[in-house]
Design a protein around this nucleic acid. Sequence first.
RNA 1: GGCCCCAUCGUCUAGGGGUUAGGACGCCGGCCUCUCACGCCGGUAACAGGGGUUCGAAUCCCCUUGGGGCUACCA
Length: 474
Amino acid sequence: MTDPVRVRFAPSPTGFLHVGGVRTALFNWLYARHYGGQFILRIEDTDASRSTEESIEEILASMKWLGLNWDEGPHRQTKRQALYREKVDQLLSEEKAYPCFCTPEELDKKREEAQAKGLKPKYDGTCRNRSGATPEGAASVVRFKAPQEGTVTVRDLLRGNVVFQNEELDDFIILRTDGTPTYNFVVVVDDGDMGITHVIRGDDHLSNSPKQALLYDGLDIPRPEFAHISMILGSDKTRLSKRHGATSALAYRDMGYLPDALVNYLARLGWSHGDQEIFTRKEMIEYFSLESVTTSAAVFNPEKLQWLNQQYIQNTPPVDLARHLAPILVKEGILPEGHGLSLEEIAKPIPSLNQRAETLVEMAQKSAFYFKTELEFDEKARSKFLTAEIKPHLEKIASGLSEINVLEHDSVETLFKQVAEEAGLKLGKVAQPVRVALTGSTTSPGIYDVVLLLGKDTTLKRLSEMIGFIKSRG
RNA sequence: GGCCCCAUCGUCUAGGGGUUAGGACGCCGGCCUCUCACGCCGGUAACAGGGGUUCGAAUCCCCUUGGGGCUACCA
């Protein structure tokens, strides 16, 4: 019987949650859900100068928006200081760590000198070998006493055994002058204390693993399994950053992406299941395994994300989509704040728009003709299509529509075809002016759908306004 | 610089000794059509280079090259 899986996502709150972090969170989440284990959220806020409450809020909001629900936490490292102190003391008393009185200035100097001589810029061990009385009142840090020879082997589920020479490592700091512990130390203490069984994290941590492995051994904590997933790169194959466009999870929400689309996209970066591109969460959870995760870095491709988003927009039930669309309609100024419309009402135009939008922002903009009472006209389109020649046909459409009791797709279509035929015009010659009159634009859903969506009253009102406009223009 | 990781179309990937090297995004054609789209059909395009191992390497090994990461009193 194996232990139940316990994995964690441990972001540092020094900024927004970026898509690389989301992918790490996602892989952990999928792993936990696949094995029926626990997914723990831990905030790594040991760097007091860079951590902010706003970042924590944004991380939590991002996780919620993405639907990456956690079973435990969020734990805050700042609230666990006593435990870290206890573990530092343990190492100190076992002489596996020692106080160091070297100042940052001295260390910088030594580092520079070593580099100038072409030597490794590692701690020279001055205080490791120090004997005699401790300097009175001098500030000190605590360093871990790392082995100076031999090797550490880190077992990685994705990469096999990775061997590091101990001489590459140095006596790294585990407790700062101000008494706060450093990253490499707290991860180990926390992962041990929280019973983490699998550490799934970014590739950038692989080089930290030997230090942490040594710490596990020093603290007599069994090592967890490690799996270092590759990183996400920008189009120029450098580390993904703002230069490459949006990297914050919530920015994608604001640009009109669906959380399911982002999750699906990120899952397929480094993971695959045959030729399948689109997965429900259930399928992802069922199929996910580390065996099907790739180890090479992946380039973030916005076009494919957009395509996936489009797929999700097409296939999400209108009312569900409306929930995500509503705030965007307000943000785009298409609906006023406090509009009071129900999701069902907002969902109305979605069936005619979900084949023509790649993002919800785009969908919102294209739905303006439906939601706004005052149409905004594309001036060029209006002068091109709404001419004196077309006026009689518009009038015929208007009177034809007013005679139909209940508007239906077929009856509207019949009317339009009839008017066009009698005028000896192609359907488009009639439909396009009507489109501009009803939507203000040359592009819109099918013209019959537009008529049905607007309803008889609004349609007739807009047609007569347009007829008036043509008259007034002479 | 040192150490570590990685390497199939432009991008994400399938493929793990014998394949016409498959799919997806993008791009380019065509069809459909009341606009814009959707959809459908077709096309373009890859095993980084060099050595081995083997009857046979995209696949296994080594080197080179390229990319990434780490090398902090950041995480």
